[in-house]
Design a protein around this nucleic acid. Structure first.
Lengths: 242, 242
DNA sequence: CGACTATTAGTCGTACTGACCATAAAGGGA
DNA sequence: TCCCTTTATGGTCAGTACGACTAATAGTCG
């Protein structure tokens, strides 16, 4: 069969395009994800990732950031890290109509505790491990988000996006441990982070945070670097995948 | 402004969804990309990435593979590596209508030389460096494809997707050099590849390829591994990005 | 005060890497 | 034919990174 390469010779059908979000954060040392409860069929009563239709005058990124502001109730989401994951376009993924979804991962440093959804729909933070079966193919989207974030922690400075503006190395390490699900050696982690120029920089005021037990830790800010060289590899990858 | 979290309360507009391809291969030691010449406005006469509309009964991946078969003239593209890059959805990226494009990168081992587009539209392999200004935002898509493939060479076995079923370590090294644009040390590259279990395995028949000048090289096949541990990092990244 | 916790500072041996050098095996040109 | 170039293959060597581990420090909690 021959096919013309120009756009215009193809027939094309309209698609609905949505932007869905895997909003991730660290709460009580564990990775959490923001979920909303569906109020209508299909999957009524099931939990799902927040999202919505892309409007005619906005890109998928713009729509995702708008959804993020609406769902979290945060007034300023411009500084938050938003990362496009991939696009899900299987024809039968929504039983009502043909929906193409551009998925994003968002990283929140300090989540709004009750997190105000201003409407009636229920929304809540759920621990990643207990985020049960979700509506549509959102389980797979969430798993892809987890995998992507875990991989980017290895070779980028993304971990600071989970932290407040000033943080301790312990908090930063908790980010890695929560996302990777593996405890890390404290001294080695510290040596690695401090040996990477531009990853973190000490807060000059010699400020120290005295939150809980133990010796107070020095405070750091995110540095100017965006990539890690050499990377900070996950320890779990002993055997090569079959 | 309040916004309901369910899909159905949103108004939505139809979008056209296309799948565009950055088809990459190695020709004469240099990275090449498959381009088509546009026959209609806009950008008439300009070169562009091949692509086309996603049909109602197919996913973006299916559409991309169909386009790949049509544009290259290959009868079997099922074994080729196809990788979703990201989705481009800026409202004004196509002047005619609202088009959302899911971009893919395809890796070809041995490109069909004249490569048969069976229709009138011109298509050709172009060296990556001289792939001039392309139509629409295809320059950016192509750059994203290059960056993604270059990055995945570091920590996956993707390089073998550019090679024929049996290849020499020199050919494999040429893949890295062509994509990264950097010469690599021959003995070190050999040591690294052979030290990674499952990356390549020698062809048992003790076959040796005597193509051009120099000592004949041993033949290898792609192994079972998909990831590289530890990664094979690019040498160019001395200074950290600003 | 003593137990506990977390940070911070080191040590040590192994593994990996980059920069080399050297040899073998082919082809091309004088 | 002899020499030179080209490519593959084998090896050394030092600097670095990393994992495992020990220990000191400085706070809170009971």
């Amino acid at each position: 069969m021959s096919a013309p390469p120009g756009y215009d010779k193809y027939a094309h059908e309209p698609f609905a395009v949505t932007a869905d979000l895997a909003v991730l954060t660290i709460r009580a040392g564990a990775l959490h994800v923001l979920l909303v409860e569906r109020g209508q069929e299909p999957y009524k009563g099931h939990w799902a990732l927040p999202g919505g239709f892309v409007q005619p005058d906005e890109s998928a990124e713009t729509a995702a950031r708008r959804e993020l502001a609406e769902e979290t109730g945060l007034s300023d989401v411009s500084g938050l890290h938003l990362e496009q994951l991939r696009t899900y376009s299987e024809p039968d993924r929504d039983p009502r109509m043909r929906v193409v979804t551009v998925a994003f991962a968002a990283l929140l440093p300090h989540p709004p505790e009750p997190h105000g959804g201003s409407d009636a729909a229920q929304a809540r933070w759920m621990p990643y491990d207990t985020a049960g079966p979700l509506a549509f193919d959102h389980d797979r989207i969430l798993a892809d988000a987890h995998e992507r974030v875990g991989a980017k922690l290895e070779y980028t400075c993304l971990a600071t996006a989970f932290c407040p503006p000033e943080f301790t190395l312990g908090e930063l390490r908790h980010v890695y441990e929560a996302v990777w699900g593996t405890p890390l050696d404290r001294p080695n982690f510290r040596r690695k982070v401090l040996a990477t120029p531009g990853f973190v920089e000490p807060v000059p005021g010699a400020a120290r945070l005295t939150g809980g037990r133990g010796k107070p830790a020095a405070l750091y800010r995110a540095g100017a670097a965006t990539a890690l060289h050499p990377p900070l590899l996950r320890p779990s990858r002993e055997g090569r995948p079959a």
